[in-house]
């Protein structure tokens, strides 16, 4: 079924240089509807840089990325004007940051954080938005009696749940996640990953997940992109890349993890 559908995102030779420092270099891939792509690689390999470029937060030095937008049809993300790009980010994408503080408004309540995307898309009926918010908080398994508390009163795992709800409530087609479970302790991380996995499948989302954790990659991703020093050194089905790694660097990455 997914074989016929055109790609949601076509990335073509995206490079980003910070002066002499390479962020990422000549990255190309297609992302299909409903597909989850994992981006793995060691610290400094360019994962975040790539994600920031593709999500329109950072202008690449060269390259193109064509997104199949609901509003515009196929558009090159980097050619869009700022206004259209911001609208695309608001309407069709989500971005889950590693640190919830970067993805939440710490001055407003958890509930309002979740409801904001609805208001940004023109929601003007309080009661309807309140209901949608409560539904979503239940979906991410947060105690809804605390919906009006400020995020700083929540634990890291709870903040991350709020951030996830905030990024899914408007039913985006593509979600970018940068180490979504990075700063959390292991048991919290496992539950959150389970939840994410369920949501992504249920909503038929496409997602790009950056992680340096091979276990996270195995659980979440259909396909992997392995990065080293800004280059993609290997791609393939997740289980194939992890079980039969071809590139020396991938073999090193896989072997340094005890149990997958």
């Amino acid at each position: 079924m997914t074989t016929q559908a055109p790609p949601l995102l076509r990335v073509n030779r995206v490079s980003k240089w910070f002066g002499e420092i390479v962020g990422c270099r000549n990255v190309s891939f297609d992302l299909h509807p409903g597909e989850i792509l994992g981006v793995v690689g060691e610290s400094g390999s360019g994962k975040t840089t790539l994600l920031r470029c593709l999500s329109g937060k950072l202008e690449p030095t060269s390259g193109g990325a064509e997104f199949l937008s609901k509003r515009h049809g196929p558009v090159d993300i980097f050619q869009l004007g700022e206004q259209d790009r911001r609208r695309l980010q608001r309407e069709e994408w989500g971005f889950v940051h590693q640190n919830p503080r970067d993805g939440l408004r710490m001055r407003v309540s958890g509930g309002a954080n979740v409801a904001e995307p609805l208001m940004s898309l023109g929601g003007r009926h309080y009661g309807q938005m309140r209901r949608a918010t409560t539904d979503w908080l239940e979906r991410v398994e947060l105690d809804i009696s605390r919906v009006d508390h400020k995020p700083r009163n929540f634990s890291g795992g709870m903040q991350q749940r709020i951030q996830i709800a905030r990024n899914l409530i408007h039913q985006p087609r593509l979600v970018f996640m940068d180490e979504p479970t990075g700063g959390l302790d292991v048991s919290v991380q496992a539950r959150l990953l389970d939840l994410l996995r369920e949501l992504v499948r249920d909503l038929q989302l496409s997602a790009i997940i950056v992680t340096h954790d091979m276990g996270v990659a195995r659980l979440m991703a259909d396909r992997l992109l392995v990065m080293k020093n800004g280059d993609v050194v290997e791609t393939g089905l997740t289980d194939q890349v992890l079980d039969d790694a071809q590139h020396p660097y991938t073999q090193l990455l896989v072997s340094s993890v005890l149990q997958l």
């Binding site: 079924m1 997914t2 074989t3 299909h32 597909e35 259909d222 396909r223 393939g236 089905l237």
Partner: peptide, 8 residues
Amino acid sequence: ATPQTILD
């Protein structure tokens, strides 16, 4: 085959 085809 593409990864999508193999998954299918």
